[in-house]
Amino acid sequence: MSFHSELSKDLKDELESLRWYHHELSRHAAEALLLSNGSDGSYLLRNSNEGPSCFALSVRAKDSVKHFHVRRVDQAYVFGFNQFPSLQEFVNHFANQPLVGSDTGTLIALKAPYPWRVEEPSIYESVRVHTAIQTGRTESDLVADAPSLGTKEGYLVKQGAVVKNWKQRWFTLQRHELKYFKDKMFEEPIRILDLRDCSAVQFDYSQDRVNCFCLVFPDRTFYLCAKTGVEADEWIKFLRWKLAQNRKGK
């Protein structure tokens, strides 16, 4: 049974009146959609896998996508610290292009909803040649595959390689690349770390700092600190998930 079929008929009808509610869209697909065809501040509402009364607001923030909880309690919608008595009042809130602050301190202006129905050109190529290359492969060899998306960004404090001082850097994680920049407004990264070469990510207690974790590479171990233990835990879980995906060859 799909998530959507578990919703009550009244709730289905109510949500489907919202042009930017993408009911069956997964987190992976939402990121692909917003990164490829959205713009900074584009957002959409989709189902969360946490239950029939839980939803996710997926928002493009420059080159990453952030996901925020939306819960339906009785007839109301809870988003952040606000509770809206009805879907209409929830939608009216978005008409004012509200600012949303994430745990990393990033402020995102919710500029434009991304509609579930997008106009496409009715142009298709005609097949002029269609032949088979005899490779000996069968249907069982057709394995659907795609690189893992999953994006994350935020400030972390990094220990220097030679001089063991600590400096705040802006980090972005996309696909298998962890980049860090001098600051958020810089376009060129100081360095790009290829997570396919990383063997482990774990909490670190060897430094005289709290909320630290390390990334182990063949030639160096990188020491990073987050503002809070929760934020450090999120980075570790996300990076470990990336490493697991890389080991699967995705």
Rank of each mutant, 00 (worst) to 15 (best):
H4P: 03
E6H: 03
K12R: 15
E14D: 10
L15D: 03
S17K: 14
R19S: 12
Y21K: 04
Y21P: 00
E24H: 05
R27H: 10
A29K: 15
A30H: 02
L33H: 04
L35M: 14
G38R: 01
Y43E: 00
Y43P: 01
E50W: 11
E50H: 13
P52L: 02
S53G: 08
C54E: 02
F55L: 05
F55M: 03
A56H: 03
S58V: 00
V59Y: 00
V59N: 00
V59I: 15
K62L: 12
H67Y: 01
F68W: 05
R71S: 11
Y77Q: 05
F81N: 15
F84P: 01
P85E: 12
P85G: 05
P85R: 09
S86A: 07
L87V: 06
E89P: 00
E89Y: 06
F90I: 01
F90E: 00
N96W: 10
N96A: 12
V100E: 03
S102V: 06
I108A: 07
A109V: 10
A109N: 08
K111L: 12
P113C: 04
P113Q: 09
W116N: 13
E119A: 15
E120W: 07
S122W: 08
E125P: 05
T131D: 14
Q134D: 15
Q134T: 08
L142Y: 13
V143R: 13
G150D: 14
T151C: 09
T151Q: 05
K152E: 09
K152G: 01
Y155W: 15
K158H: 04
K158R: 15
G160M: 07
G160F: 08
V162F: 12
K164Q: 12
K164V: 02
N165A: 08
W170A: 00
L173R: 03
E177H: 11
K179N: 14
M185P: 04
R191N: 15
R191D: 10
I192S: 15
L193C: 10
S199M: 09
A200F: 07
A200Y: 09
V201E: 03
V201Y: 00
R209W: 05
R209V: 04
N211E: 06
C212H: 01
L215D: 02
F222T: 08
T228Y: 05
D233C: 10
D233A: 15
D233I: 03
F238E: 12
W241L: 13
Q245Y: 09
R247V: 08
